[in-house]
Amino acid sequence: MTDTDQIPDKALEKEPNAFAQMMRMLWHDKVALVAVIFLIIVAFCAIFGPWLLDAAATKQNLRGRNSPPFDMAKGWLFVLGGDALGRPLFARIIVAASNTIMVATGAVLCSMVIGSTLGLIAGYTKTRASQIILRLADVIMSFPSLLLAVIVLYMLSPSVTNIIIVLAITRIPIYLRTTRAEVLEIRERMFVQAARVMGASDMRIIFRHILPVVFPTLLTIATLDFAFVMLAESALSFLGIGIQPPEITWGLMVSQGRPYLTNAWWLSFWPGLAIILTTLSLNLVSNWMRIALDPVQRWRLEIKGKKQ
């Protein structure tokens, strides 16, 4: 097996105006462009949503509940319909973006950083520490997340931080084991061996040579984990541990709309769609970045650009 993998990201640094080049590539890949725009909108809602629409999103109207979508008679806020308490779903989805993104980003980032760091150690070193880390991952994988949540609820008071902790802990093993599996293999590759012979420090080998190869897989998992975490969070709210009404998240909206699925589908459909679209966009952007940042792959985007 000839092994001549290259060290990525070098070509990009040489480019006089890397940002402009990225933008140009993005402009040519319309799907990625739409995804990026959608994510910017979500981020905007997460930051400014509660400030702009909080009043509208909490205004109840019991006698005008479950109003169907696409009926503009009650104002543009009701374009996606009303919920079981007559609140406009559109406004609620925008306001909920804030909590949702905070919890999901927090949990995914924490688990990814902790998991992949431990995975790097476990894969790169052959010491006892790596064995301990792996058995710890086994233990976490077998520990029911609900039990963890109940324990946290009893020991600490309910708060957003706690829900992030619970979700992050349960998601650590997947990053840990995936990182380690890849490191086990990359460690043996020619270029890593060569770097080691040339006297590169462990840190340098890990961060300059190994991490860039592992990162794309981690990113793929992380983007899909966003959806998982957003939905799992609502199950923990049931216990009283996480976001409590009248505070709201997309996951909570989805689960509150569940009984209405066959009568008023819009209650859980729109927030669910928000989750799907966010996940989809994250994934598309990460796929695109993976190609755009990889000099070996970049021709795909550039060729397409020239064609158009």
């Binding site: 909490t58 109840q60 019991l62 079981a84 308490l85 109940v150 609820l153 009893y154 309910p158 709210s237 049931f238 216990l239 009283g240 409590q244 009404p245 009248p246 509150q256």
Partner: peptide, 26 residues
């Protein structure tokens, strides 16, 4: 939904109130 509606009515009447929902054991 009932609890949220009650909360809104109480807050409207001037009560300083917050809502917490718990699973049966708690």
């Amino acid at each position: 939904e009932v609890m949220e509606a009650l909360l809104a009515m109480y807050q409207d009447a001037g009560f300083n109130m917050k809502l917490e929902m718990y699973e049966v054991a708690e």
